[in-house]
Nucleic acid binder design. Sequence first.
DNA 1: CTGAATTGACTTGCCAGTAAGTTACCATAT
DNA 2: ATATGGTAACTTACTGGCAAGTCAATTCAG
Lengths: 209, 209
Amino acid sequence: MASSRTGTKGVARADREAQIVDAATEVFGTDGYATTSLETIAEQVGVSKPMIYHYFGSKTGLFTACLHHNGAIIADEIERIAREDATGLERGMRTLAGIFGILEEQPLMWRLFFDTTAPVDDEGIEAALATYTDRITGLAQEGVAELMHLAGNDDPLDVSAMVAVWMSLVDSLVNWWLEHPDESAHAMTERSARLILALYAPGVAQVPA
Amino acid sequence: MASSRTGTKGVARADREAQIVDAATEVFGTDGYATTSLETIAEQVGVSKPMIYHYFGSKTGLFTACLHHNGAIIADEIERIAREDATGLERGMRTLAGIFGILEEQPLMWRLFFDTTAPVDDEGIEAALATYTDRITGLAQEGVAELMHLAGNDDPLDVSAMVAVWMSLVDSLVNWWLEHPDESAHAMTERSARLILALYAPGVAQVPA
DNA sequence: CTGAATTGACTTGCCAGTAAGTTACCATAT
DNA sequence: ATATGGTAACTTACTGGCAAGTCAATTCAG
């Protein structure tokens, strides 16, 4: 038996798929969709490229699977928090804490949803992004609109810009976290609170009229 | 004379280079480094691909040229503002106004410096990014550290995270602008001021201790 | 008539995707 | 218990296309 290379290794499809999605999340999240080669992902799992094609059909198919797997996790958590009765910055802080908690295990998953190199003309990717980012952005929209209303500003364009700022604020904190992997989710939450608080210190705010 | 395709068109090197850098800034800024093909840029200038190689040597060489051209413009402006004597949020607002003014003509240039698909292992790109983003981030660092100091927070990690948030805030507003091209730089500045102001409205800030 | 501007037509290499085959697990029949 | 056949897991070795980078030739300006 000359140590044959081919043939099953006895790993069930569901298990392999999970392994592949996990590895793909990491590699896509690190290198971005465009510059990632499936060979890299296959190698990391310890499997050959055709295995991926067999299970996911295409590169876009694999990426879509990653979006669904991780998007559901994130969106569910944010929705759960939105159902609590917090408003204004308090709601924002709780959402941040929830996101950090989710991402503690695999922060890279966040990047999938902001990967500008992913082909949006693909059906599956388009649908998945529509589902999850719309769900997430929708909740952000709700929270921000409420906050702006408290401030007496109901201008839809202002709200829209503020949503963009909010989303990118979360993004920047997650990316900062990725560069400081020793931080716990809890530490990140407290740090974020300190940053917000700094804006309210005397001498900081002298905004022109 | 069977309408020959080759031969000079009488455009001086300096002029062509400027045209190419302008077009490249637009295409790189829109599609990102990785997914951009030089053929696209050449086509847009109305010139052939070897022309680009002749003048810039390589794809990374062209990208580097774009970084230098646009980076100098942005960094100079931000440095100019930093020399004015404003502090706290006031300084931040002036910087924003300056950036919007610079970007009014070509907002896409901003994206070059945050293109995660650009090959950082390239000498020229690495050097250019080091020069300009360090210059820009350095000034941000200075302003943010000062703001945080006013708030009694001198924790270097907090400052570092706040710099990331600030940079990303600018980024998000520029990207929002790109999706709303009708807005003038002045309108963007005023909008940004309104967004900040909203945070100071009663009822908004109830941050947990 | 020299040199700079310019291009068509190549080569090269990488990577998505495919074809065709190999091995092991597992159910059922004897 | 043990043979046996079907199917699911798995791989090597290819094809095809696109985009980076090159070469040799061509034409116009001064």
